[in-house]
Amino acid sequence: MRARRPQMGVVLTAQHRAGRLAFAREHQDWQIRHWRLVLFTDESRFTLSTCDRRDRVWRRRGERSAACNILQHDRFGSGSVMVWGGISLEGRTALHVLARGSLTAIRYRDEILRPLVRPYAGAVGPGFLLMQDNARPHVAGVCQQFLQDEGIEAMDWPVRSPDLNPIEHIWDIMSRSIHQRHVAPQTVQELADALVQVWEEIRHLIRSMPRRCREVIQARGGHTQY
């Protein structure tokens, strides 16, 4: 045995596990043609300070505090960018950069559902399914009413299931890509521009959905490697 960093996971109650297990069992027999109709969406926040504790330095004993071995990290002073995106087997939406302020239900409807999701749903056609998590703006009455009026069906997504959403891996890939650049973004605008560029280069991971469901079943609704 060797000492390893523990895998991070959300807190799962018995109710959460039951919901996750029920969802996985319901969709375990879905084939790729079924998942083809689903648009997986999510928001994520990226910061200018990219310290994620993955970095390593080679150093001699006693050189821990040498300037070349210190990764400077401003915990509170760095700017950040929140983005929203959607992916499917057929393609992806544009990456939407959210301006300052929090994401409210009204903003979600007016900046995302109306200009981005509705046209995408129309392009996919009958059977389109919107995957969104249970964040408050997503499940607010005004947004639910908008989806109903537009005839857009949203999946009944289990609470606390980021491992079932393949877009979560894309956020991680994007973060690593930005972090590994020779010249890191210095301003919020540079960060936003870099995120949009990386977004267009990412391949989709939706073909992993059958495997994700199987792993949730094997874990009896618990945490998975995703």
Rank of each mutant, 00 (worst) to 15 (best):
P185W: 09
R20V: 07
A94E: 14
C68W: 10
P6S: 06
D55K: 07
D133A: 06
R5I: 04
R75Y: 09
V38L: 04
W35C: 11
P162L: 06
A105W: 06
R17A: 13
W84R: 02
D52E: 12
R4T: 09
D55L: 02
L21C: 05
I217V: 15
Q186S: 12
E63C: 12
Q218G: 00
I106T: 15
S44W: 03
D193N: 14
H16R: 05
I32M: 13
A99L: 10
T104Q: 09
D29I: 00
M82P: 08
R212P: 00
S49N: 15
I87M: 13
V216M: 05
Q148H: 13
A135M: 07
L130Q: 06
D74T: 14
C68F: 13
L71Y: 10
M82C: 06
E43D: 06
C213E: 03
L129V: 13
T47K: 08
V83I: 15
T187D: 09
R92G: 00
E215A: 15
L113R: 02
R181Y: 08
A14Y: 03
L191K: 08
H179N: 11
M82W: 01
L21M: 06
P137T: 13
L130F: 14
R17W: 00
A22M: 09
C143T: 14
A121I: 13
A105H: 07
Q144C: 06
A66F: 15
Q145D: 14
D149I: 00
S88L: 03
T93I: 10
E111T: 03
T50W: 04
R118I: 01
S78G: 13
H96Y: 14
G151M: 08
H73I: 01
R136W: 00
S177R: 15
A135G: 09
A105N: 11
E200P: 00
S161I: 11
W30H: 15
E215V: 03
R45W: 11
L12S: 04
A67I: 14
L116F: 11
Y120H: 13
D149S: 05
W30G: 01
V188A: 03
G221C: 10
D163P: 00
Q132K: 11
W58E: 07
L95V: 12
L98V: 12
P210H: 03
Q189L: 10
R107E: 08
S44T: 15
R17S: 04
T50F: 05
L147K: 10
R2K: 12
S161Q: 06
I32K: 10
E111I: 12
S175R: 12
G125M: 12
R203M: 03
A18T: 04
F23I: 01
F46E: 07
A135Y: 04
P185L: 05
M174P: 10
Q180T: 01
A14E: 09
R207I: 06
R60L: 14
A14H: 07
Q197P: 00
W199R: 01
Q145V: 08
M155P: 01
R176T: 05
L39W: 08
R59G: 02
S44L: 00
